[in-house]
């Protein structure tokens, strides 16, 4: 019998290696559950979960909703674009109104860094961060690490390169924390303008040359260029970015060893990776999506267990 060391999942920074291990072991069993003829368990039948998405999402929203439904929770969905937020309601008011309807857990995505932590201090519900600005996206990092563990076994000593727009990426930050806690080595690679200035202080290697990064790593996690978050131009043209940092089949097959290719989605085919890499045998992209449901089920199950 055991529990996570936290009451909310706000970021990977707040949890420890034991928590991650417990989440993975629980996710292993949920992965078996979602491959059964009947994919549902009654664990959260007396739990109500609100999915609050103040920012667009396809995969994360569907994955959380499916995970909640597979656990038999009652689910309500909320999208900021179609709500009273556009009439000027504050975040705390919106959430407290939803909680007044007796909601136990809140899964939230928000464009501002720290929104989930802020909420956890002001409302009485278990909060799961589904992405807050360019800060953290903990369940994505967990499912990425879970997928690597499934493919390569132990993460200890494993070399992971995160390539692309590191500056605007919450996936990169959560992945760095998660992989380091599991004993993996992390390198970030991208144009110098898209690498945060002090990132080496997190203990990651920095490499500006894609080929060198790929030769070093066992796993390459290719990130999307987040044009919607870029207020100024960070590189001369998308064409130049593709030429310097795009991963294509020719580069992948020219490497001295086979590496695993990952992508958190959504993919911009032909920019960070080409279609033939996305659909390559070395690509884990669809396994990541499948594992996402199992990992989110584990997170919700373990957090819900401590709600009284």
């Amino acid at each position: 019998m055991s529990a996570l060391s936290v009451k909310h999942l706000l970021g990977i920074k707040d949890i420890n290696a034991n928590d991650i291990d417990m989440i993975f072991k629980t996710a292993d069993t949920f992965k078996e559950v979602i491959n059964r003829p009947i994919k549902k368990t009654p664990s959260l039948r007396d739990t109500t979960i609100a999915n609050l998405f103040f920012e667009n999402s396809t995969r994360t929203k569907l994955s959380f909703e499916l995970a909640e439904k597979r656990l038999s929770a009652d689910v309500i969905n909320f999208a900021a674009s179609s709500s009273s937020v556009s009439k000027g309601e504050t975040l705390i008011d919106t959430v407290n109104n939803i909680l007044a309807m007796k909601v136990d857990m809140v899964v939230m995505r928000h464009p501002y860094a720290g929104a989930a932590k802020f909420l956890s201090k002001h409302v009485n519900a278990t909060i799961v961060n589904a992405g807050d600005g360019a800060h953290e996206h903990p369940t994505q990092a967990l499912l990425d690490a879970f997928s690597i563990r499934e493919k390569l076994g132990d993460l200890k000593g494993c070399k992971v390169a995160i390539v692309g727009d590191i500056l605007h990426s919450r996936v990169a930050l959560s992945n760095i924390f998660c992989l380091q806690k599991l004993g993996a080595e992390v390198m970030v690679c991208g144009p110098a303008t898209l690498i945060p200035k002090y990132i080496h202080e997190l203990g990651v290697k920095v490499e500006l040359n894609l080929k060198k990064a790929l030769e070093w790593c066992d796993v390459a996690n290719m990130l999307r260029i987040q044009l919607e978050r870029q207020d100024i131009k960070y590189f001369p043209s998308l064409r130049e970015y593709v030429m310097l940092y795009g991963l294509n089949k020719q580069i992948l097959e020219s490497l001295s060893k086979q590496i695993v290719v990952m992508h958190p989605g959504p993919i911009n085919r032909g920019i960070e990776i080409t279609s033939d890499v996305a659909d390559h045998a070395q690509s884990l992209i669809l396994q990541q999506v499948e594992n996402g449901v199992a990992v989110r089920m584990a997170v919700l199950y373990l957090l819900a267990g401590s709600i009284k």
């Binding site: 019998m1 072991k25 559950v33 368990t41 819900a304 267990g305 401590s306």
Partner: peptide, 23 residues
């Protein structure tokens, strides 16, 4: 067969039970 997810004492215990493998 693991029955953890089907138990009737979830949230009535101090901590959730960690499941075992079903095969």
């Amino acid at each position: 067969l693991d029955v953890t997810f089907y138990r009737d004492d979830f949230r009535r215990r101090e901590n959730p039970l960690v499941p075992n493998r079903t095969q």
